[in-house]
């Protein structure tokens, strides 16, 4: 067999092998993608909430994308407490005004940023939230103050549709 023939033969083998491998690789995608959020889940990405029944000092928990969202109508004392904190003391410095569009209403995802437990309200050393799983303390603005959680409680995207209705997502 001449060298030329051998080259041509190897070229055929390599092309066939590579072509088959490319096909097998693209075949894998549907099997991976099927586990991603499906069309019906994606469609539930926003929810509207009526705020009228909530009085100052009261919180409600609503479901958004399968997660609890805390909506708290804060008392003046809580707002003052949140505002006077020195940012330098915070593990994750954020102004309260950056966390609440309207100081009276605090809207945040009720999931501890440590390992995903749901913190308890109006508990802990800072009179905000306290996660019972591993002892993270959050203040009245939902900022982490003490414990293993790395960041403040997450603020979801939301807008006030009018004075008494918000839309999350």
């Amino acid at each position: 067999m001449s060298e030329k023939q051998v080259t041509r033969r190897n070229f055929l083998y390599v092309t066939t092998g590579a072509f088959a491998a490319a096909g097998a690789a693209s075949l894998a995608w549907p099997f991976v993608d099927q586990m991603n959020p499906d069309a019906s889940v994606k469609a539930l990405a926003s929810t509207e909430i009526d705020l009228r029944p909530i009085i100052p000092g009261q919180s409600i928990t609503v479901m958004w994308r399968g997660k609890p969202v805390f909506i708290r109508r804060r008392t003046q004392a809580e707002i003052d407490e949140a505002k006077k904190v020195n940012l330098a003391d915070l593990p994750h410095p954020e102004e309260d005004s950056d966390r609440a569009q309207n100081p009276e209403w605090l809207v945040m995802v009720g999931i501890c940023t440590h390992l995903g437990c749901v913190p308890l309200g109006q508990k802990g050393d800072y009179n905000g939230w306290f996660c019972p799983c591993h002892g993270s303390h959050y203040d009245t603005s939902g900022r982490i103050r003490k414990g293993p959680a790395p960041t403040n409680l997450e603020i979801p995207d939301y807008v006030f549709l009018n004075e008494s209705t918000i839309k999350i997502g």
Binding site: R9, L12, Y13, T15, T16, F19, A20, G23
Partner: peptide, 16 residues
């Protein structure tokens, strides 16, 4: 289309 091309490639590989 992909399978047709692959079958032609395999046909020649097999013959070889």
């Amino acid at each position: 289309s992909y399978l047709l091309i692959l079958s032609v490639l395999l046909y020649f590989t097999n013959r070889q």
